[in-house]
């Protein structure tokens, strides 16, 4: 190695330290300048790019955040900061599925990190998934609503027409009354011809019960379809007893109880080496990922994507 190269390295490190100092003092332009110089001297150091990206992030300059993070990742695929910031930048640009991909990679990289960091990344993943779902769900919900109204009208129209047809075959004067009472319990017909009325009443009640039945079926079908969009209670068996939230990274203890990994590790470190529910002695190395529950949560979220809102 030539001495010139070494001094460039050293100089770049000094510039980075200066940049960090400026950043701490909230002098973002000066920090960006320092990092840019460091990059010019040593373009193959990922930290210089992620530090500059952090400055751009502070200014909500998402295009530049994205560009710097992508470069950092070309240098170092395992840069957690680059993955995380790239995910956020893509989320800001409404590129949800790409954002989710990056944030999930960040999650993998953060395993074993502090619970606060894992928590922040998870909540960004949840935000991205909810936004992605909402983008599809809202128009779909509108379409269903419109179709439902259309079908209901068509059904009512069909009922009305059948009553009219019946009316014109019988006494014309009863038509008005039949039409008015289309969905009422009592059919009020003003006519003196009792025989005719009996026959008409029978026909009318037949039409009516057919209408009511079809309407009920229609309601059932659309209610069922609407469930996908309607937030309800998340089942307790898919929630950690400590976070009270859906499991993200569930682990099972020798007592057979499942907890959220990050919070349980926190507990073991800060509260004590015992199972929070059974109080049986517990060490971190005894925890096993609960893959079955993980799959169950995944399946639940696929059916109830609104639950990502608090994920």
């Amino acid at each position: 190695m030539s001495t010139g190269f070494v001094s460039a390295n050293k100089q770049a490190e000094i510039l980075k330290d200066q940049g960090n100092l400026y950043f701490k003092k909230n002098r973002i332009s000066a920090a960006i300048e320092a990092y840019t110089e460091a990059i010019t001297l040593c373009p193959k150091v990922a930290t210089y790019w992620t530090n500059r990206a952090l400055c751009h992030k502070k200014r909500n300059d998402w295009e530049r955040v994205e560009a710097d993070c992508r470069t950092a990742l070309e240098i170092d695929k395992s840069s957690l900061k680059a993955r995380y910031m790239l995910g956020i930048a893509l989320l800001e640009k409404n590129e949800f599925s790409e954002a989710i991909k990056q944030l999930e990679k960040a999650l993998d990289l953060s395993r074993g990190g502090t619970s606060d960091m894992v928590e922040v990344i998870w909540s960004e993943v949840g935000k991205a998934k909810y936004a992605e779902w909402e983008k599809v769900a809202l128009p779909q919900q509108q379409k269903q609503k419109a179709l439902r109204e259309f079908c209901e009208n068509a059904l009512r129209e069909d009922y009305k027409n059948s009553l009219f047809r019946l009316g014109s075959n019988n006494k014309a004067q009863s038509c008005g009354a039949l039409y008015e009472n289309i969905e009422d319990e009592m059919i009020d017909i003003n006519s003196s011809d009792f025989l005719e009325i009996d026959k008409t009443t029978f026909e009318v009640s037949k039409l009516k019960s057919s209408f009511v039945e079809k309407k009920q079926t229609l309601d059932d079908v659309f209610d069922k379809a609407a469930e996908y969009y309607k937030p309800t209670e998340v089942p307790e068996f898919l929630c950690c007893k400590i976070t009270m939230d859906l499991y993200r990274d569930p682990v099972i203890t020798p007592s057979g109880i499942t907890y959220e990994r990050a919070i349980l590790l926190d507990h073991l470190e800060k509260v004590g080496k015992f199972d929070p529910l059974t109080r049986a002695p517990l060490q971190a190395h005894e925890l096993i990922t609960n893959l079955a529950i993980k799959e169950a949560v995944k399946a639940y979220l696929a059916e109830h994507a609104w639950a990502y809102k608090t994920y």
Partner: peptide
Amino acid sequence: LSRIAANRLHKELKE
């Protein structure tokens, strides 16, 4: 309150 604490307290209150 930390984010985790606030989240959990919202849940507890709701429950």
